[in-house]
Design a protein around this nucleic acid. Structure first.
Length: 309
DNA sequence: CCGACAACCTGTGAGC
DNA sequence: TGCTCACAGGTTGTCG
């Protein structure tokens, strides 16, 4: 499910619901994801205000930097205290401004192979693979479901783009800085197949198996060609195809995000526009030749042997 | 530096 | 029906 278009679709769905909201609690039911969910996460998140929902590659970044100035950091909400109400300062003392300004940080989420974020109400019982909840003061719950547990839930203080997991990622594919010249430069030393290099996050962020297959089809490039042998003009074409494919998929709401923000949420339907992915043996939409299915780097590759040279 | 491969984990569908 | 196997949208680490 989650490649860049699905993560972006999720981001766009969540952002208007989350930005400006205060987090009441974080619930961790299973810490064993790709990396252990930090033990301190519930403490760090409780009381934080969400100031933004961003994306880098396939990582979702929930900015909790909005200072929590209405109650003392670390102090639990007292029973009966209304959300947003200030805790009274200890008798006679001035409130300590140091602890009233939250340090802030970013919640880093990755959906792995099988992760999804849902918005449910607080009464919805969690399923067996619902590992993490973000409970908002307004009662909404953002729930992470990830059966295979290749996903991530991490916390980062300071500049999140410098985080070890993000620092080495290549340019955003939809950024103007990712152009034919950039891809050409990045591939000169790469003898691996162009499809594998395209899926390598250091080359460009967020291109997974589906969209690597689709973009190479649209560009008319054989996925097995060594990257360094893809010339200037073909790099231009490939970048155009990557951008066009991703934008179309985002417009379609991703490839299979169903009900991710409740029962009336968007249902992505980009699957219906796949030209080659999962179409082995079927006819090429352009020339009718049978789509070929092969293995590259332990992933399935699909291409038209006639249209892609 | 590069590339090939295994590993992490659960669910699903095909074939017997 | 039930078993076994291959494979699934991602990433990281190890080895040669």
């Amino acid at each position: 499910m989650p490649e860049l278009p699905e993560v972006e679709t999720t981001r766009r769905g969540l952002a208007p619901l989350l930005v400006g909201q205060r987090i009441r609690a974080a619930v961790v039911r299973n810490r064993s994801l790709r990396q252990p969910v930090p033990r301190a996460l519930p403490r760090l998140l409780a009381g934080a205000t969400i100031s933004g929902v961003a994306r880098r590659g396939k990582y979702l970044l929930i900015d909790c930097g909005g200072g929590d100035v209405s109650r003392e950091a670390g102090a639990p909400l007292r029973a009966g205290m209304r959300p947003g109400e200030s805790a009274p300062a200890a008798d006679g003392e001035m409130p300590d401004t140091r602890i009233r300004t939250r340090r802030g940080g970013t919640l880093i989420l990755h959906l792995g192979m099988s992760g999804r974020l849902w918005v449910v109400d607080g009464a919805t019982p969690p399923g067996s693979h619902d590992h993490f909840d973000l409970v908002l003061e307004n009662g909404m719950v953002v729930r992470l479901r990830d059966p295979r547990r290749f996903g991530l839930v991490l916390w980062c203080e300071g500049r999140v783009l410098d985080h070890a997991l993000l620092a080495g990622i290549g340019p955003e594919p939809l950024d103007p800085a990712f152009d034919g010249a950039a891809l050409y430069r990045a591939t000169r030393s790469r003898s691996a197949a162009i499809k594998l290099v395209l899926m390598d996050g250091r080359t460009v962020a967020g291109i997974g198996n589906i969209y690597a297959n689709e973009a190479l089809y649209h560009a008319g490039i054989n996925p097995r060609i060594p990257a360094r042998r893809v010339g200037r003009a073909r790099c231009e074409r490939l970048v155009d195809a990557v951008k066009r494919t991703l934008e179309l998929a985002i417009d379609a709401g991703g490839s299979s995000l169903r009900d991710y923000v409740g029962s009336d949420g968007m249902a992505g339907n980009f699957q219906s526009q796949f030209m080659v992915y999962d179409h082995a043996g079927g006819p090429c939409p352009r020339c009718g030749t049978a789509i070929r299915g092969i293995r590259q780097g332990q992933r399935s590759t699909f291409y038209c042997p006639r249209c892609q040279r």
